[in-house]
């Protein structure tokens, strides 16, 4: 589903990603962990070209991400959820969710709203359709953001620290929605600090440090028996 070859990214003269090779299979849930500044968010943001790589290639769902047209086409198939939600504050929840399907997929208003209501029901917020984002709690906003991404019927979902900006009591409601999504077979790449989620939901755990994939494997195995010193050091600090 996602194929990354020798991906490199530099900001000025600082190299953030130092040659990443990664293949994500359909329906796979890949959880990316690592210290802050390790490049894990940049890696995720390269998967839909919010960050343009310095070199290397990224192919998503058979579309190579090069050139404006290809990138826009691929982004229709790649949903993204941000740490800071990034809902559109001047639109209602329903408008937030229906905008892209109407303008990009060109589906009718009625159909877009029908899908939006189904998704809102799925994330438990059907009663908030007419609310504006600033009226919602962080956890509710993030669930709307997930519904908004899903409304495009993406084949892959990218999550960039989706619970890091939330109050502790709201983390679970968002993780539950993500869990549900994973069980329904969505292909997901998740950058997170939620080790419980990584262990329970992840098919594969990626430990990234200093712009490289240091170690990867089944989450349970990596957690219980890390092979690399840097992984051990990281776990010793957080667990």
């Amino acid at each position: 589903m996602i194929d990354i070859k020798d991906l490199r990214k530099s900001f000025d003269d600082h190299e953030v990603l130092k040659g990443i090779n990664l293949h994500i299979n359909p329906q796979e849930v890949v959880v990316i962990i690592g210290p802050s500044g390790s490049g894990k968010s940049t890696l995720l943001r390269c998967m839909n070209m919010l960050e343009v790589p310095t070199s290397g290639r990224v192919v998503v769902d058979g579309i190579e991400l090069n050139g404006e047209a290809n990138i826009n086409k691929a982004r229709e198939e790649i949903g993204m959820v941000f740490q800071r939600f990034n809902l559109f504050p001047h639109m209602t929840v329903l408008q937030n969710i229906t905008l892209a399907p109407r303008k990009v997929r060109r589906i009718s208003q009625e159909e877009a709203e029908k899908t939006a209501m189904e998704l809102l029901t799925q994330v438990g917020l059907a009663d908030k359709a007419d609310a504006y984002p600033p009226q919602l709690s962080g956890g509710q906003q993030q669930r709307v953001a997930i519904a908004r991404a899903l409304a495009m019927h993406p084949k892959v979902m990218l999550f960039d620290e989706p619970t890091s900006a939330l109050d502790p009591e709201m983390v679970k409601e968002v993780l539950d929605v993500m869990k549900d999504l994973a069980h329904k077979g969505m292909t997901m790449a998740v950058v997170t600090h939620e080790m419980g989620f990584a262990r329970e939901v992840g098919d594969r755990l990626l430990f990234v440090d200093d712009g490289m994939i240091i170690e990867q494997g089944k989450p349970k195995e990596v957690f219980e028996n890390p092979q690399e010193d840097r992984t051990k050091l990281f776990f010793s600090k957080i667990l």
Binding site: L50, N72, F82, N86, F88, L99, V104, R148, M152
Partner: peptide, 21 residues
């Protein structure tokens, strides 16, 4: 906030569409 442009673009909207809506 530049997250607004990123959110619009990540949904497959063009730069012009994101600006406009």
């Amino acid at each position: 906030d530049k997250g607004q442009m990123e959110a619009g673009r990540s949904l497959g909207m063009t730069w012009v569409q994101t600006m406009r809506y």
